[in-house]
Structures are given as C-alpha cells and as structure tokens.
Simulated assay, not measured.
Amino acid sequence: MQDPNERRIVQEEIVRGPAGADVNIVEQRTRVEPTPAERQLGTLYRAKQVVWLLVGLLVALIALRFVLLLLGANMNTGFGALILTLTQPFVAPFLPLFNEQNARVEFSALIAIAVYLLLGWALSKLLEIMLAPRTPPASY
C-alpha cells in the first residue's frame, strides 16, 4: 500500500538519433508531482490569501474613512463621497456605539476595524481546520 503523503517521482529518458547520424542524443527529465497533502495545502494557502485580501481592502477603506473625517475632508463630493458610500454598510452597525451620526471623528470606525480583523483571523483559522491535511496516525 502506497503512502498518500509520499511524493511521486516521474523520470523520463528520451533517446533520439538524428536521421543518418551515428550519435544518439539522450535527454533525461525528472518531474516531482505534488502529493495530495501538498495540493490540499496549496488550496488552503490560496483560500487564506483571498480572505486576507478582502479583509485588508475593507480595513484599508475604513481606515481611510477615519483619516479623511479626522482631517476634516469634504465628504459630500468626489473621493470623500465614494469612500463614505463604500464603507457606510460596514461601519453602520458600529455607529450607535458612540452616538456618532455625522461626527467628524468616528471612533466606531476603529471598533469596526478591530472587529473585521478579528473576523478575518477567525475565518482563516476555520479554513485551516476544514482544509488542512490530516497527519497520518503514528504507528507504535
């Protein structure tokens, strides 16, 4: 029985001789195919990358909102309005915490950043639990 975590090594040897020549050309190739466990780790790594990309973008937008409001930017036109519109659904649940409707400094945005980072970490750990390959039991 083959171990599922053992790498499969494929070796090829190609012998070619040019037409009418006395010399043969030997070409050797070695290819290592990933194990099922390595493929599973690759999937896990990619899923975690996607989670942290989305969490990072969201946190960056909320932080930008916080800084723009702190510096007194005009949030009714242009870029300020865009940032406010994009982040409003994500910050809205936290606004009543400090009664900051239309405030210049939104401390609730900082709470939102902490909560979304915590959710990203929890989702990343959940992906590890679900997708990480199981180690084979040790034989005694």
Rank of each mutant, 00 (worst) to 15 (best):
W52G: 03
R46G: 06
L86N: 04
A19E: 11
I111T: 14
Q11S: 06
E38G: 12
R65V: 00
R39Y: 08
A122P: 00
L58D: 04
P36N: 07
I111L: 13
V59D: 03
F107C: 03
A122Y: 05
L61I: 02
F107L: 15
T85W: 08
L57N: 14
Q2R: 15
L97R: 00
V15R: 12
I113S: 05
A92V: 04
E12H: 03
F94S: 08
R104W: 01
A21C: 03
R29P: 00
E6Y: 08
V51C: 11
L131A: 01
L57Q: 13
L68W: 05
I83Q: 09
L117P: 08
R31W: 07
L68N: 11
I9H: 08
P18K: 11
Q88G: 02
A92Y: 05
E106F: 01
G17V: 07
L123C: 10
V67Y: 09
L119D: 03
I9D: 02
L41M: 15
L71C: 10
P34I: 08
L95P: 00
R39F: 09
G120Y: 00
A73Q: 13
I62M: 09
Q11R: 10
V105I: 15
E100Q: 07
I62F: 01
G17K: 11
I14R: 07
A21G: 03
P96C: 00
L54D: 14
A109C: 14
